[in-house]
Computed example of a mutant assay.
Amino acid sequence: MPTTSLTVLKFDSPDGAEEALEVIEDLNQRQLITLHDAAIVSWPEDKKKPKTRQLSSLTGAGALTGAFWGLLFGLIFLIPFFGLALGAAMGALAGSMADVGISDDFIKSVRNKVTKGTSALFLMTSGAVQDKVVEAMKDMDFELIASNLSKEQEEKLREAFADD
Rank of each mutant, 00 (worst) to 15 (best):
T59E: 12
T65Q: 04
D131S: 14
K116I: 00
L58T: 05
D104H: 05
L75T: 02
E19L: 13
G16Y: 02
L27C: 09
D37F: 03
V23W: 04
L55Q: 08
A17K: 01
N28W: 03
V129T: 12
A88P: 00
K116A: 11
T52K: 00
I102C: 10
L86V: 12
L21Q: 02
I40K: 06
S109V: 07
W43H: 12
A38D: 09
K48F: 12
P80C: 10
P14N: 04
L9C: 03
M97C: 10
R111Q: 15
K48M: 11
I79K: 15
S13L: 02
D104M: 10
I79M: 15
R111P: 14
M97Y: 15
A20R: 03
A17F: 02
S103Q: 10
L93H: 09
Q31K: 14
T52N: 06
L9V: 00
T125H: 14
M124V: 12
L21D: 06
P44L: 06
E45P: 03
P80G: 10
L75A: 12
I76K: 09
S13H: 04
S119Y: 02
A85Q: 13
G127V: 00
G66N: 13
L9S: 01
M97V: 06
A17Q: 03
T125P: 01
F68M: 04
L58F: 11
A20D: 11
G70S: 13
V41P: 01
G127H: 08
N28S: 10
S42D: 07
I40F: 06
K108L: 13
L72A: 03
F68A: 05
K48I: 08
I40A: 10
L86R: 10
I33S: 02
W69H: 02
L32C: 09
S126C: 11
L35Q: 08
K10G: 04
A17S: 09
T34A: 08
F73N: 07
G66C: 01
K48H: 11
A63M: 00
A94F: 05
I102N: 09
A38R: 10
G83C: 03
K48Y: 07
S42A: 13
L121M: 12
G127M: 05
G95K: 15
F73V: 02
G95E: 14
G60A: 07
G70M: 01
A92V: 08
L27D: 12
S103C: 11
I76G: 03
I33M: 06
E45C: 00
S126G: 06
A38S: 15
G74Q: 01
G66W: 02
V100N: 06
V129R: 15
A92P: 02
M124R: 01
M124C: 05
V114L: 04
I107W: 05
D26S: 15
E25I: 01
G101Q: 08
A61P: 00
A67H: 06
V100M: 11
N112F: 07
A120L: 04
V23F: 00
L93Y: 14
L9M: 14
W69D: 07
K49A: 12
K113G: 14
P14S: 08
S13M: 01
A128E: 14
D15V: 06
G117Y: 02
E45S: 08
E25F: 00
K108N: 15
P50G: 11
S57M: 09
A89Q: 13
D131P: 05
